[in-house]
Design a protein around this nucleic acid. Structure first.
Lengths: 148, 148
DNA sequence: ATACCTATGGTCAAAGATAGTCAAAGTTAA
DNA sequence: TTAACTTTGACTATCTTTGACCATAGGTAT
């Protein structure tokens, strides 16, 4: 494992906790065991806006580097959908959500097919009716959040 | 036996274990006893997509070459997997199936992510333990059959 | 206020570490 | 004999690591 990957991994760990991370370049470099400028290299090669991150920094005494995951258009839309789904959803409504997201270009056709397969009522037939829609909501939300 | 066949044989041996192999070109060439570029020759003459392989590589420090076998009989393989899954499957075993199918090139990385999201134990927490693995097996099988 | 000092982070180019390409030379099989 | 396949190495492309030098913010002495 090369140094840059190590650094990226460490930053990712910090980001996982809250979606943002703040470091002091020199301290962090020393902890990792690299020259400070390598932190810049990693940031510019693996934490670009294209890759979904915003990096801000301040120089001088008390300076630091802040990294945030940004919400592109799509992630925001997905989050909005997930939040609006609620605790239960029936198969019909689930299909409507998927069609809508697909038509607006937020999820791929392949994803729709897979999600429909996962949320199909047939998978749940052996379960009591009361829990099926709740289960479907859980699965749907998880899959939307995971979809590319 | 010429060098290229030797190299191909060595790669095939590595691939047999999991359907994928990773080498560092220079090290591997030295072990075999050939110039590094000959590895490229072997890859481009014997590990093409037409022959059922995907080759990916990365240059620079820490770089490497990855080789994956893809399948020419995906439908059969998927059916075989579906049939061997049985009525119940736990999350761990489910992950193993997915990793195996992915490494052999039967399903895409995107599909793996979606299927894992759908079969995650967290989705089932509110259900009694006895039904979770049965439910997971249903969903997994449906999704495998639906996956591209 | 001004000048200076110190503590940060930023930039860039060179060196290092891999892998890729291509064409010439060698070998083999039809 | 000749066309296809193999082997080699010089040159190229990409990614990583390092360090010298630059820029900026805040504090301190005058």
């Amino acid at each position: 494992m090369n140094l840059s990957n190590l650094i990226a991994r460490a930053l990712l760990d910090m980001l996982d906790e809250s979606g943002s991370a703040e470091i002091r370049r020199n301290d962090f470099a020393e902890k990792i065991g690299c020259v400070p400028s390598q932190i810049n290299y990693v940031l510019s090669s693996r934490f670009t806006p294209e890759q979904g991150y915003i990096v801000e920094s301040r120089r001088g005494g008390g300076g630091s580097i802040k990294i945030r995951r940004i919400s592109l258009d799509r992630p925001q839309m997905i989050m909005h959908a997930v939040n609006s789904i609620g605790a239960e959803i029936d198969e019909r409504t689930c299909g409507a959500y998927l069609l809508n997201l697909f038509e607006r270009g937020y999820i791929s056709g392949d994803s729709v097919i897979l999600i429909k397969a996962a949320t199909n009522e047939n998978n749940f037939r052996f379960l009591p009716g009361e829990v099926r829609d709740r289960l479907r909501a859980n699965i749907l939300k998880q899959m939307l959040l995971a979809s590319t």
